[in-house]
Design a protein around this nucleic acid. Structure first.
Length: 584
RNA sequence: GCGCCGGUAGCUCAGUUGGAUAGAGCAUCGGACUUCUAAUCCGAGGGUCGGGGGUUCGAAUCCCUCCCGGCGUACCA
C-alpha cells in the first residue's frame, strides 16, 4: 500500500503541476483510506484544498486531475478506476490483479512488506525503572510493557535499540530503610517476602519520621553515611539490591521483558559532582537559596527552577538524569532517547530536555508519557485495603481467571496445555489492554473487560490465530511446502479482497506506531485484521472450497491467505510482547 | 494563582493531525451452529462530540471564553 500511495502521489503531483500550475510536493499530498468502502480504497482531498488558491470549484479541479491522470497508463496497473465524488474528492479503486500480485510479493518476504529503514537509528529506551527495596506494583506495568513494545517495534524495523532499566537504587529512601532495618526488621517476614518486608519497614520509618524529627534526622544521617561510603551501610544497600534484582528478574522473565543494561541511579552517583561543577562553570546552573538550580527563560518554564543539588549538598534525580544523558551520549551516541515514564512527570522532562539543549548535546529526546491505571472508582488503582496492587498478584489473578475460562471452554485438553493457554491468554490480556488504548490516556482496569473474548482484546486476536492453526491441523497442511509452492492469490469474494488489502497495510501500521511512539496503532490494526479474518472465515470455506475448474488454485490461495494472516498476527502480537497460541 | 492533560452513544474507548452521513466493542433487541473452533458471525436501535462564540468552502479536530474533572507547580522520584 505504501508503494501504491507513493506512485499515486507522484502522479498527482505531476498532474497538479502540469494541469493546474501548482507545485505540490508528493509528500504533502494527503492520500488515505476513506472511511467508507463505497469511496474506494484511497482518496485525496487536494482538489478541496486547492480550490481557494485557484479560485475554481473543487469539483472542476478534481475533474481536471482525474482527466490528467488518464495519461499515465502505468497507473492503470495499480488503479482500476478514478472517480470524482462528494464535494471534490478524488477516489481511487485498486486493481484486483495488483492486490493479488502485491500480496504474493509480501507473502514471500520474511518482513511481510515492511521496508528497511533508509538510515538506521540508534535508540536508547529508558523504561520500567522500579524502585529498589519495594515490590513492583501496577505503577510499573505501563512503563515496562510500553517500553518493551517500543523496543520490539524499533528493533524489528531495523534500528539499533539499547534498552536500559534505570533502577531507582539510590537516594534518601535508603536512609529510612537502614533505620528501619536496624530497628524493626522481622527476619521471618524477610525470608518469606523480602521486598514486602522492606517496604513494610520503610513505611514504618516514614510514618515515624513525619511525627518525630529525631527519626527523620537519623535517616538523613544514615543516608549521608551511605553516600560517603560507610562500610556497614553499603553492605546493607548491596543486600537490598540483591533481593530486589532477584524479585525483579522473576517478573521480567514472566513478562518476557529483557534489558540490554540495568544501570541504576547509583551507577551515576560518582559522576554527579563533576556534572554539577561543569554546569556551574558553564553558567548553566547557579546557586539560589542555597540550592544549585537551572533557571529558564522560556515562558512556560520560567516559574519553577530545575533543582539539581539540595541546600544540604545532596544531589537530586535531576542531576542523575543529566549525568545519565552525558554518559549515554558518550557511550552509545544515540540519535534518539525515549523515556517511558508517567505523564505526570512532564514538567521534569521539559526542564531536563531544555537544560540538555543548553548544555549542548544534540540528540532527539522524547518523554513517552502514559496515563494512570484507575480502579472502577476512577481513582488510581488500589487493593481493597487501600494499598498498592502488586504486579505479581495482578498477573496471578489474570492467569487464574484465564484458566477458569479455558477449563470451561476446553475441558478435554490436558492440564498442562490448559495452563499454558491460560498463561498466554492472561498475560496477553493484561498487556494488550495496556497497549490498545492511546498511551497518554488513563484507563480503567477491569479483568472482565480485558478478558472478554470478543471486542478489541488479546484473546480475540489469539483466537483468530488459533483458528487458523486449527485449519492447518485439520487439513494436514504442510506450511513450509505451501510457502515454497508457486500458488497465487485469487481474490474472488469481497471478504477475501478486503482481507488482502488489509494485509497490505501492515507495514504502515508498524511504521506509524514507531514514528508516533504509539503501540496502539499496531493493536488497532491487528484488531481490524482479525475482524476481517473472522468475516472471511464465515463466508469462505478453506479446506472444502467449492468445486469448479479453479478449485485447487482457490484452496491454495485461501490457505495462503490464512497463513499470511497468521504470520502478521504472530509478528504483530510479538511486537507487542504477546504470545500467539496454537490452540485455545 | 499559573501551567499541563482530559470531557465523543447507557458503559469502555477510537477518530488517519482540518474533509464525505462522527466509528468500534460492551450492554439492549432480532437473526445464524448435522458445517475448517459459536471464545465466532450478520442485522437494528442508540450522539446538541461539555456550553457559547470565532476562523473557512468545511471543525470532534485550530483560536477565544466559560463550566466540570484530573494532574503538576523550590530542595521526593
Amino acid at each position: 500500500m505504501l508503494e501504491a500511495k507513493r506512485t499515486i502521489s507522484e502522479k498527482l503531483a505531476r498532474v497538479v503541476r502540469q494541469e493546474l500550475g501548482v507545485d505540490l510536493p508528493p509528500e504533502e499530498i494527503v492520500l488515505s483510506a476513506p472511511r467508507k468502502e463505497a469511496f474506494g480504497d484511497l482518496a485525496t482531498n487536494i482538489a478541496l484544498s486547492l480550490s481557494n488558491k485557484l479560485r475554481l470549484s473543487p469539483k472542476e479541479i478534481a475533474e481536471k486531475i482525474r482527466q490528467g491522470l488518464e495519461k499515465y497508463t502505468d497507473l492503470q496497473d495499480i488503479v482500476k478506476n478514478v472517480e470524482v465524488a462528494g464535494a471534490g474528492f478524488v477516489n481511487f479503486r485498486l486493481n484486483e490483479a495488483w492486490v493479488e500480485r502485491k500480496a504474493g510479493e509480501f507473502y514471500d518476504q520474511e518482513r511481510l512488506g515492511v521496508p528497511e529503514p533508509a538510515k538506521p537509528l540508534t535508540v536508547v529506551i529508558d523504561f520500567s525503572s522500579p524502585n529498589v527495596a519495594k515490590p513492583m506494583h501496577v505503577g510499573h506495568i505501563r512503563s515496562t510493557i510500553i517500553g518493551d513494545a517500543l523496543g520490539r517495534i524499533y528493533r524489528f524495523l531495523g534500528h539499533k535499540v539499547i534498552t536500559d532499566n534505570h533502577l531507582g537504587d539510590w537516594g534518601t529512601q535508603f536512609g529510612m530503610l537502614i533505620v528501619g532495618y536496624k530497628r524493626f526488621l522481622d527476619k521471618e517476614a524477610l525470608a518469606k517476602d523480602p521486598l514486602g518486608e522492606l517496604e513494610h519497614i520503610y513505611q514504618k520509618v516514614y510514618n515515624l519520621a513525619q511525627q518525630d524529627e529525631a527519626v527523620a534526622e537519623e535517616a538523613r544521617q544514615e543516608h549521608a553515611k551511605l553516600q560517603s561510603g560507610h562500610e556497614q551501610n553499603l553492605a546493607l544497600w548491596k543486600e537490598f539490591m540483591q533481593w530486589s534484582k532477584m524479585e525483579f528478574d522473576k517478573i521480567y522473565q514472566r513478562l518476557g521483558v529483557k534489558f540490554d543494561h540495568t544501570l541504576g541511579e547509583s551507577f551515576y552517583n560518582p559522576m554527579l559532582g563533576d556534572v554539577v561543577k561543569e554546569l556551574k562553570e558553564k553558567g548553566i546552573a547557579r546557586e539560589s537559596e542555597g540550592a544549585i538550580c537551572i533557571f529558564f527563560d522560556e515562558p512556560e518554564l520560567a516559574d519553577a527552577p530545575f533543582i539539581i543539588q539540595r541546600r544540604d549538598g545532596a544531589w537530586l534525580y535531576s542531576a542523575t538524569d543529566l549525568a545519565t544523558i552525558k554518559y549515554r551520549m558518550e557511550k552509545f551516541k544515540p540519535d534518539l532517547i525515549l523515556y517511558v515514564v508517567d505523564i505526570r512527570q512532564r514538567l521534569h522532562f521539559q526542564q531536563l530536555f531544555t537544560a540538555v539543549r543548553r548544555w549542548g548535546y544534540e540528540v532527539r529526546l522524547e518523554h513517552i508519557g502514559f496515563g494512570t491505571i484507575l480502579g472502577e472508582d476512577r481513582t488510581p488503582l488500589k487493593t481493597r485495603e487501600g494499598g498498592l496492587v502488586r504486579l505479581e498478584d495482578l498477573l496471578d489473578e489474570a492467569e487464574k481467571r484465564a484458566l477458569s475460562i479455558v477449563n470451561e471452554q476446553n475441558p478435554d485438553l490436558s492440564e498442562a496445555e490448559r495452563q499454558d493457554i491460560a498463561r498466554a491468554v492472561g498475560l496477553g490480556a493484561v498487556k494488550y489492554c495496556d497497549l490498545s488504548g492511546a498511551r497518554q490516556s488513563d484507563y480503567i482496569f477491569s479483568f472482565n473487560r480485558m478478558m472478554r473474548l470478543d471486542g478489541n482484546t488479546a484473546p480475540y486476536l489469539q483466537y483468530a490465530y488459533a483458528r487458523i492453526q486449527s485449519i492447518f491441523r485439520k487439513g494436514e497442511i504442510n506450511i513450509a511446502k505451501l510457502r515454497r509452492g508457486n500458488g497465487k492469490f485469487l481474490l474472488q469474494e469481497e471478504s477475501e479482497r478486503d482481507l488482502a488489502k488489509c494485509l497490505l497495510r501492515f507495514p504502515e501500521a508498524v511504521l506509524s506506531a514507531a514514528s508516533e511512539f504509539a503501540p496502539h496503532l499496531v493493536s488497532a490494526y491487528l484488531y481490524e485484521l482479525s475482524t476481517r479474518y473472522s468475516r472471511f472465515y464465515e463466508t469462505c470455506p478453506v479446506l472444502t472450497s467449492s468445486s469448479g475448474p479453479s478449485m485447487d488454485g482457490l484452496k491454495e490461495s485461501r490457505l495462503m491467505l490464512c497463513d499470511y494472516v497468521a504470520r502478521v498476527l504472530k509478528l504483530g502480537l510479538n511486537l507487542l510482547g504477546i504470545e500467539s497460541i496454537e490452540r485455545m
